[in-house]
Design a binder for these strands. Structure first.
Lengths: 212, 212, 212, 212
DNA sequence: GATGAATGAGTATTCATTCAT
DNA sequence: AATGAATGAATACTCATTCAT
């Protein structure tokens, strides 16, 4: 058995406190699932384990989610949606298309990552286990980046030789990887280093110097 | 059974042709495993399925590999070793530390990716399913990149603000992602575009313009 | 499949009568296991077979016992505990250390053996199959006998030349063997013959005559 | 795997020394089987393991024995036959029906046990694993004892209350158990103690005192 | 809505045995 | 006689899911 340690529920709630409050029960299942998926991965986690960790009975799981994968997808897509909402909110306070906007979005990303480490692991390290989900994540990120690069190209700010489509894939993967890598151990680099590096590596950052 | 489609063996093997040749049997198991893992992923593939696909009996699988994960790891690490050997051979024919060397290594990578699409999927898309293997892959790639960036920094060729450690993670992830993405459908970009973009995105490429 | 005969459940259980009563389910598994282990031995019996015989699904077995050996051990040690409890209760009604006490304990043993023939087979014929269990059984019986012989020796009632340790092993084995042998076919001897012989063979029985 | 240690062949014979000498090959299989069955028991030992231990190929096993159980039975019944032959030879040098004869037979038994500890384990501890074999062993021992007790009874030398049939079972079990127990660790008692005790516990030993 | 005992299909792995060499 | 790679039936155990309470 992989999930051997009795696994204390993160969101405490010693047993039946939330009974009869379906919203809280659902939240607890999501919290428990995030925690366990982050640690053990989709295939090593059982629906009964999630229920136990959440302090509810096995059958209760299926009252809230049709199956294990549905919980996983809920965690992933709800998490992504919240991340994007936060980034959009932060970016909207900066002039469009500027380095400041990029910086604000990255800063928000890192804050989010620090705040929700387990979720980050699920999103960017474990999601690949669920066939298709990793693809969906990148598919959800890359198009936005690509649109930005197409705009940069039109503005003459994308270096020659850089294909927007290729660069968008590369960028999305790089940012996601950095988020996962840094989350794993924030002592690996200061937040400042991470942001500065990611800003400097953005094609838009160095393009201007090419076209004086 | 997950692998429901009768799954024709790729490496033809009109029944027992390789019988009594353990080396060929092992090779066939590796070929069958690469094929199936690429299509269905570690957890959806059964050892019996690999054996059947290879044209041997279930028990024969365990004559050659102690378990399913061992086959998976063999495929991954043998594949990585061959890839690196080819890249090293190609890079060695160019002046060290130049864009030409980088270009040669990337070209080799893409050739390899075109030649072994199933293996690429296993290496860069499916390997994350096996806890730890994805980490081992990045851990195998990033340090080399980081060393290069440290050298660039010493030579004044790394842009200000770029942390070698952070940039190495970003770069490794980007290259791996591009390889997987492009392999999935080579029509997504020309090989030229891919190489040019990856060369252009390397910090070393645009640094010179910063220090005229 | 070894247990080929459709094997009618002993404890009748016209299908799902005990459903939802975990205590009864457990009891039925124990009864089914006792029955099957007695007939076929530990290695020839499958956990699925026990479950079927008990009228429950395969998985239910593992809800009640961690594995096949755990059921076997439960049967053996619970059985031994009950046997000893009965003997102690019977022996306590006779003067300590007398032939009457010995006779009462033996009579109880035989009653128990008649009542639970399958359990006797498991305890004294099949238990040797489970590495260690046979040793544990003798280890559980012999020390008590040895203590008695040491006391007899102190009282001058053990014949010269008889080592308490050796005699204890011999006695434990003899009693156990007789129980198994007689259980196998009670027509082999009358209960009276069995008891009389075992009493007569006890060193204490003939020692007095040595010391007039 | 239970037989995990590479298991050095006892009868050395580094590999192919005995090749082409079928008699020695067979002997080596018997020696290897005795060794492994004694340590691990019938069910934990594989035919391939015996072959490896004997320094021959798997298939060779089946050239000499039709199956695993056949080897087991050969070990057991050849062993028993040799034991009885030795006892008969030793007993024949003493006056029939005397304590000296009994003592000589017991001494021979213990010598044999000391000399062939692995065989003793197979005969008296492990044989119970093979359904039927333990019964056959007792069936092979008890009748002789019973005949002796019937003769004693006829000679008025069997104590009242002792049933020859029951006593024979008890005696056979006791002697076998003592042999196994003492073989396991000869420090448990001196050989003298063992013999004296077993002689003293024989009904014939104390009967005379009953009939002055 | 919640419970948790029960279900049973699914799968990794073992090993006695065969047989081409 | 000997080899050892190959076979494939057999089995312990898991876990997603159901459903009577």
């Amino acid at each position: 058995m992989s999930v051997s340690t009795p696994s204390r529920p993160i969101v405490d709630l010693s047993a039946h406190r939330a009974r009869r409050d379906p919203v809280r029960t659902r939240e607890r299942l999501i919290a428990a699932g995030t925690d366990l998926f982050a640690q053990h991965g989709l295939h090593e986690v059982t629906s009964a384990g999630v229920a136990r960790h959440a302090g509810v009975a096995t059958g209760t799981f299926y009252l809230h989610f049709p199956d294990k994968l549905a919980l996983f997808r809920t965690i992933v897509f709800d998490g992504l949606a919240e991340l994007r909402a936060r980034q959009d909110a932060a970016g909207a306070q900066q002039p469009r298309g500027t380095a400041e906007e990029l910086r604000a979005r990255l800063a928000t990303f890192l804050e989010f990552a620090e705040e929700k480490r387990a979720l980050m692991r699920v999103l960017f390290a474990r999601s690949a286990e669920a066939a298709g989900i990793a693809d969906e994540i990148v598919a959800a990120l890359a198009p936005g980046v690509e649109r930005r690069y197409v705009a940069l190209r039109a503005a003459g700010r994308l270096p020659a030789g850089v294909s927007p489509a290729v660069a968008a894939q590369a960028r999305a993967a790089a940012v996601v990887r950095i988020a996962a890598w840094w989350t794993e151990d924030p002592a690996r680099a200061t937040r400042r280093e991470v942001i500065d590096t990611l800003v400097a590596l953005d094609p838009a950052a160095f393009a201007p110097s090419v076209t004086p």
